[in-house]
């Protein structure tokens, strides 16, 4: 491990109201360049709030970050930067993709134009050749007949296709970090596996790091090198994915593992 990771979250605390307990408490997470890191936890564990904090996507009229908290991307402090500066980071150096492929794309614009918009927002000089580049990236995320899909509207595509379009959007200006927040959770298992494979291949090709937020141990097992387990707003355990999966230390991790449905009844339901 180098001294300075690509993404370094240090002692992150997020509070949504002065009276309620913080949603995230003292979370520290490192993502080295080109690696695949997972955050696993149930809903309400603070994993999404943590991920959203990186791109400052929490509604900051109600979300407050702790004084001592710090998030750096490539050595650049994000939490204390003005939001106007963050806009140039979003979608350019770090991108984020979300769950629910039904609603993540704007329903009244052609999907190609939406991807093109992201590219042009960060690389205005590419305006002239943008269409060809977008069709290339649609192809890269595994969309067949990308030139035709370019002109289609989100409702004309399947859930898996829409998710691929969003990935194309996220990688359009070659970010060094992709944050995937339950990005495959709403897809059925076969599509989920295919989309994960696409993300993995893209990450390897481009040396892009992936921070995978999930509640699904299966995704961690298939995708991640390193994993953080979050529970009640805190990181309770972290380690190489293989180690966590085979010898979990924390009770909560054991329960999470036990909750994975198994095909063979001879395995114990609880660890």
């Amino acid at each position: 491990m180098s001294d300075q990771a690509l993404l370094e979250i240090r002692d992150l605390s997020v509070r949504f109201s002065a009276s309620a307990p913080p949603a995230v408490r003292g979370v520290s997470i490192r993502v080295e360049a080109g690696t695949r890191v997972g955050i696993i936890g149930e809903s309400g564990s603070g994993k999404s709030v943590t991920a959203m904090s990186v791109l400052r996507l929490n509604d900051e009229r109600i979300a407050h970050y702790g004084e001592e908290s710090s998030i750096t991307l490539d050595g650049r402090e994000l939490l204390k930067a003005p939001l106007s500066a963050i806009q140039g980071v979003r979608g350019a150096q770090a991108s984020m993709i979300f769950q629910d492929p039904m609603s993540v794309l704007n329903p009244v614009f052609r999907v190609g134009h939406q991807v093109r918009d992201v590219l042009v927002a960060h690389r205005p000089e590419l305006r002239k050749t943008a269409k060809a580049l977008v069709i290339e990236s649609l192809d890269a995320v595994g969309i067949r007949n990308p030139a035709a899909v370019y002109r289609q509207y989100p409702h004309e595509l399947s859930g898996g296709m829409r998710q691929r379009v969003m990935i194309a959007m996220a990688i359009a200006s070659s970010p060094r970090l992709l944050i995937a927040d339950e990005a495959t959770s709403a897809l059925d298992v076969t599509v989920q596996a295919a989309v994960l494979e696409t993300i993995g291949a893209l990450a390897d090709d481009r040396g892009m790091a992936v921070l995978m937020i999930t509640h699904d141990m299966g995704v961690v097992a298939r995708f991640c090198d390193y994993v953080y387990v979050m529970y009640h707003g805190e990181v309770v355990e972290s380690g190489a994915a293989a180690d966590i999966l085979t010898s979990p230390q924390h009770d909560y991790t054991k329960k999470l593992l036990a909750s994975v449905p198994r095909l063979h009844g001879d395995q114990p339901r609880t660890a």
Partner: peptide
Amino acid sequence: QDYMRTALAMGIS
């Protein structure tokens, strides 16, 4: 809507 969050996360002005 989610698509507005997507646009925000992608750095659209």
